[in-house]
Simulated assay, not measured.
Amino acid sequence: MKLTQTPIQSEEEILERAEQMDEILDLSTSDNDMYFIFGNMIADRIEEYEEKYLELPKVESHEMLSMLMKNHNIKPSELVNISGDIHEIIKGTRNISKDQAKKFANFFNVPIKVFIN
């Protein structure tokens, strides 16, 4: 229970918890078993530490979109329903609107702030 409730205090501890989380999640057989629940509770502590202490470099929204498309093997034509201006957005010549940011966030299952500069 300590792993799931105690805040992480150091980078060394975050690495230890991540390893323990992976081991616990490997034992999981469904989204409802205790291994899965405990693994995600440890992930919550890791996320809290990262949000508080780790500063990620700023990535422009169009660069993030391009990276996500590449990682998920998504072609621009597959995103035309979100924006008809997808090519201009990818090039960085057109900004992503808030409505488009919501749709991209839902599509890629990431926080909306990824697409808002």
Rank of each mutant, 00 (worst) to 15 (best):
S61Q: 15
A18Y: 14
A105D: 05
P76Q: 13
L79P: 04
V80I: 13
L54G: 03
K52M: 13
P57C: 07
P57L: 04
Q100D: 02
S66G: 14
Q100Y: 05
R45S: 05
L79N: 01
E51L: 01
S61I: 03
H87C: 10
G84S: 09
I112S: 06
M34K: 03
E13Q: 11
T93V: 12
Q9I: 12
I90Q: 10
T4V: 09
I42H: 11
M67H: 04
E47C: 10
D99R: 11
Q9Y: 05
N95Y: 13
I74S: 04
S66H: 08
L65V: 08
E13G: 03
N73Y: 03
M69F: 10
G39Y: 02
T6A: 01
I112F: 00
E23C: 00
E23P: 00
L54P: 05
I24H: 01
L54A: 04
I42A: 06
K98A: 11
Y53P: 04
N117L: 03
P111T: 01
M64H: 05
K70P: 00
F36T: 04
T93Q: 11
E60A: 15
I90H: 14
F104T: 12
E47K: 12
N71R: 13
N71L: 08
F38H: 13
H87Y: 14
E13P: 05
Q5Y: 06
E55L: 15
L68W: 01
N32S: 14
L3I: 14
S83W: 09
I90M: 13
N32G: 09
K52E: 15
I74D: 04
L3P: 02
E11N: 06
H87T: 07
F115N: 00
L56M: 01
N40L: 10
S28A: 15
S83D: 07
I14H: 07
Y35A: 12
E48Q: 14
N40W: 07
L54K: 13
I116L: 14
S66T: 14
L68S: 10
E13S: 04
D85V: 03
T93F: 02
L79G: 03
I14K: 05
T4I: 09
F38A: 09
S30K: 14
Y53I: 05
R17G: 04
I90P: 09
I14M: 13
L68R: 08
Y35T: 00
F36C: 08
K113Y: 15
M34H: 02
I116T: 15
S66L: 07
T4D: 09
K58Q: 06
K2N: 13
F36V: 10
I14C: 01
E63A: 06
D33N: 11
S61Y: 12
M69Y: 00
D22A: 11
T29S: 09
M1H: 05
I37Y: 01
E16W: 15
L15W: 08
E48G: 08
T29C: 05
N109I: 00
N71C: 03
S28P: 13
K52V: 02
E12T: 06
K58S: 02
A18M: 09
P76A: 08
M1K: 06
S30P: 10
T93M: 00
S10D: 02
N81Q: 06
E11G: 00
D99S: 11
K2M: 08
H62A: 01
T93A: 08
D31N: 08
F38D: 14
L56C: 08
E13M: 08
E12R: 15
F36H: 12
N40R: 13
Y49F: 15
I24L: 15
D85I: 07
D99I: 07
